[in-house]
């Protein structure tokens, strides 16, 4: 999603002023002249300055030309049509979804669902999708859960090993 420098610059300036304000409300620490407030306030101030400069278009001449993107991507982006740019936000949504359901469904089922959705969204054929869904979760579980003892949750479907 491409935004103008004005938008991102002003956003940074806003974030900086919030950091400055949040920092200024931190309590002083006995025995420290420069308390925990100083650093966030300095950063906040710096962000405000940078944000304003960016919004004013200073330093823009150093940037490489933006390569044209957002054209014909297969899968979800094509299906969404004009809202195709929203497709980019599928991976973080899937990650959050993974955190929410993995304890209930277990690693194997959650991983399979995540692979199903993301592979289809990227335009994989059904045959490829199902192949990945069936093979990858047990292999990952074997490597991380069994050999390296990462406690991946069992949930509804426990691994047979």
């Amino acid at each position: 999603m491409h935004l103008s420098d004005r938008v991102t610059g002003l956003f940074l300036a806003l974030l900086g002023s919030l950091a400055f304000w949040g920092g200024s409300r931190l309590p002083a620490v006995p025995g420290q002249d420069v308390g925990p407030a100083a650093f966030p306030m300095a950063i906040g101030g710096g962000l405000v300055i940078c944000g304003v400069l960016i919004a004013a278009g200073i330093g823009h001449s150093f940037e490489a030309k933006d390569t044209a993107e957002d054209d014909q991507a297969p899968g979800l982006a094509r299906w969404l049509g004009r809202l195709g740019w929203l497709a980019a936000f599928l991976p973080p949504v899937l990650l959050i979804g993974y955190v929410l359901v993995v304890d209930t469904l277990g690693f194997l089922l959650t991983a399979a669902i995540m692979l199903l959705v993301s592979a289809r969204a990227l335009g994989a054929s059904w045959a490829m999708t199902i192949g990945v869904m069936l093979i990858a979760p047990p292999v990952v579980h074997l490597a991380f859960g069994k050999l390296l003892r990462v406690p991946l949750p069992d949930g509804l479907l426990a691994a047979p090993w």
């Binding site: 940074l12 974030l15 900086g16 950091a19 949040g22 920092g23 931190l26 309590p27 620490v29 420290q32 308390g35 925990p36 650093f39 966030p40 950063i43 906040g44 710096g46 962000l47 940078c50 944000g51 400069l53 960016i54 200073i58 330093g59 823009h60 001449s61 150093f62 940037e63 490489a64």
Partner: peptide
């Protein structure tokens, strides 16, 4: 990229590093 954007990105990183209690004051921040 533009040096100003680079500095802004670094400042953003510093702001992220402010989060938590692992600061010299031992005070929970953000």
């Amino acid at each position: 990229s533009s040096p100003i954007k680079a500095i802004a990105a670094a400042l953003l990183g510093l702001l992220v590093a402010c989060v938590g209690i692992e600061n010299p004051g031992g005070v929970p921040r953000f």
